[in-house]
Design a protein around this nucleic acid. Structure first.
Lengths: 147, 147
DNA sequence: CAGTATCCTACGTGATACTG
DNA sequence: CAGTATCACGTAGGATACTG
């Protein structure tokens, strides 16, 4: 499952770095792309966020990460665990108890992602304006046949 | 087309910021999520990357952004244009010539994304190790029925 | 509680053909 | 050249039911 579980998402971002056309740069870019393929998907970052500074149980995650299905939560958690971004601790008790937490690696990722998030914050107004302006332009534009 | 063109991708990242449970934070997080919904898709960042520091024509983009279909290139370009991240300049000549370029807003986005890319670079080895270790653990783990 | 196994659908995406 | 319009397909991902 883990091997054919490759969502089409962020990814490719890595190639941003191969702008310089440096061959060695390119090799590393491919690696980075591979990584972003996993951490850039729809749910991973939401999960990472919920895990920041806290240890959380499976059901808590399911409840707090609004909209995620049990299936997706499991898949996301497995992927992050495999990449060493989250840790999974099973307590041999009944009923079962499993704790998830961010590893140190996960903490550093959290920091990086915040940069992108900040950008969205800082520019949300500009983008809203741009969208409105664009939509207005489209609405005003007459059909070619009506010219 | 632009309104129902909502790929399921990065998104939600914004909610990373609502960790503090600040209500106002949450409002802005939703906005940011909306924005990341667009810029986080598979092709947008590749296009943005190709556009860094340069004005590029449609066909050039199609050739350089490996693997993108004409349909997706058009859709991606439209979305980025609507968000004010790229500019589209039509030259009234024959044959047609259309130039695409990053706006100032687009330039700032490029910078932010590079942070995440850098993270992938810096930690690719750690992740590779983690994956190998995880896969090894899975392979070693005997079937329950064999215990 | 914490998953796993199936079924099923929506949508992203590529291929192809046509237009101004 | 720079698109737009269709069609066809794979698969991500939701809903549901079952298990240890």
């Amino acid at each position: 499952m883990a091997s054919n579980d490759r969502p089409a998402n962020l990814a490719n971002v890595a190639e941003l770095a191969s702008v310089a056309s440096d061959p060695d740069d390119h090799r590393r870019a491919c690696k980075a792309r591979d990584i972003l393929d996993r951490i850039g998907d729809k749910w991973s970052l939401l999960v990472i966020r919920r895990l920041s500074n806290e240890t959380v149980r499976f059901t808590e995650l399911r409840r707090d990460v609004t909209g995620i299905s049990q299936r997706m939560l499991t898949a996301t958690l497995r992927g992050l665990e495999r990449d060493g971004i989250v840790s999974r601790t099973v307590h041999p008790v009944v009923p079962p108890r499993v704790d998830y937490a961010l590893t140190e690696l996960g903490q550093t990722l959290l920091a990086s992602v915040c940069t992108l998030v900040s950008w969205s914050y800082d520019h949300s107004d500009q983008i809203d304006e741009a969208r409105s302006a664009y939509d207005q332009r489209q609405a005003d534009k007459p059909r070619v046949s009506e010219l």
